[in-house]
Amino acid sequence: MVDRGLLYREWKQNQVVILLSIAFLVLANPLSIVNTYLSYQGCLDRQDPQYCDFIVNYSISNLIDINWVPGVILAVCFLGMERSKGTMDFILSLPYNRSQIFQTKFWLGGFVIVLSQLIGFLLAWLLILVYNPEHVYFFEHSSIGVIVISFMAFSLVMAAGALTGNAFAQLLTAFSAAILPYLIIALPVGNLEVVFGANIWEIFPSPESYFSLASNLSNLVPISYVVNEWLINSKYLLLIPAVMSMLFYLIGFISFKKLPSERNGHFFLWNRLDRPVQILVMAFGILGFGLFGYYTGHSIIGYILGMIIGAVAGFFVSYFSIYKKTKV
């Protein structure tokens, strides 16, 4: 499945970014604890000990909350940058099939993300034993959760990289996919509210049922996992990003195997995606700018003006990003 020669090539090609990712992912978790400990020590130096607590609480903003960033960077380096720099041709010319190439890239990144964070988790656990804080909140839940979420982010950007022909397109597609459920559901609903002058929650039996549904739907939006609000929910919620990871992996694997590589430099490798995606971008532009126009002055004129601006902006943005080939 993963060839040693290919693995070595990937390692040499992305040595710096892999090492930096490992360093960050290994150190982020223990450094958070060290930071909390140093803050506690600082407090003890300045104030009476009764006013100082040594509490490790992972629900408060923590360095490991951005552990998904190395996943994104690795995926862009593995696919988008290879296509943008023109080095993908060299890999494809080697004596391996496309499945092997994708598997090698994917699992190299996957192991870097998962193993580094597991080591970081272990180090943090040892530090907790050594420092012996008064309370530790959400340590396991948060540490394991960010592994799942960073793996999902990596899978998502890898899938986007397998569909697109350059690094910019990869990032834009990944971001769009990360907010796609919001774009598909919330934008049209918001526009319906404007057109019919009603609030959507009014058709629900109670406001609570509406907010409950909205909250549940937001769990399907990959970007919602960037902030650690998932910590206050059930641990089983992490099954959603885990399933998403598998789905993105499959999309990436099949796309990398099947899509034509002669379109490197273009936005989409499969040119049949160009037109439907352009129409979608324009539709989102119309709906998004329309809402923005309405809420600036709460007037229908603002709404219509916003829609016109959205249509024009959507057209030009989609035209220049999708139809103009990047130099490779």
Binding site: R4, G5, L6, Y8, R9, K12, Q13, K85, G86, T87, D89, F90, I91, S93, L94, P95
Partner: peptide, 24 residues
């Protein structure tokens, strides 16, 4: 296959390239 340009080779020395290619 020896293309007109091979951007993959750019950042490596001869020894490093040998090290990569002999494994492939």
């Amino acid at each position: 296959y020896m293309p007109v340009q091979n951007p993959f080779y750019d950042k490596y020395t001869y020894k490093q390239l040998v090290d990569i290619l002999r494994r492939i």
